[in-house]
């Protein structure tokens, strides 16, 4: 028995840039990985349904006929809205910048002022 090695996960050789805008390659690969994880979860849930079915519980049908009561509806809607907040955290930041008139110029100006002791 040997200790589990840490196998390499990076590749010798420069990875080409495919998209001309910097960062898009990274974003694209992250999107595909997220899609992969979504497929993984879907498949896992599919297995769960089938395991339950084999034990006599028709989870798929029960899910379809499930009636959410008011408490469930509220809890789910809250979860959904919180998810949007997390998903669109950057849009929220951008909006606040528009509303507060934050700018790159103002940012640099602040750095200067802090450095020179103006504020």
């Amino acid at each position: 028995m040997t200790d589990t090695p840490h196998l390499p996960r990076t590749v010798r050789g420069k990875r080409p840039a495919f998209h001309p805008t910097e960062g898009v390659d990274e974003v694209m690969s992250m999107v595909v990985v997220l899609a992969q994880e979504m497929a993984v979860l879907r498949e896992r849930f599919d297995t769960a349904e089938r395991v339950m079915a084999a034990r006599g519980i028709d989870l798929a049908t029960e899910i379809e006929s499930f009636e959410a009561d008011d408490d469930v509806l509220r809890a789910r809607e809250q979860a959904l809205q919180s998810f949007y907040d997390r998903l669109f955290y950057l849009q929220r930041q951008r909006r606040s910048e528009l509303e507060n008139k934050y700018s790159d110029e103002a940012f640099v100006e602040t750095l200067d002022k802090v450095a020179t002791g103006d504020i």
Binding site: T2, P5, L7, P8, T10, V11, R12
Partner: peptide, 21 residues
């Protein structure tokens, strides 16, 4: 020189002392 077909570590990877990974 390069990890051929992007296989991390390549054919002769020495990452595992057991040398079969």
């Amino acid at each position: 020189a390069l990890d051929i077909h992007c296989m991390p570590g390549g054919y002769a990877s020495a990452a595992d002392p057991a040398q079969f990974a």
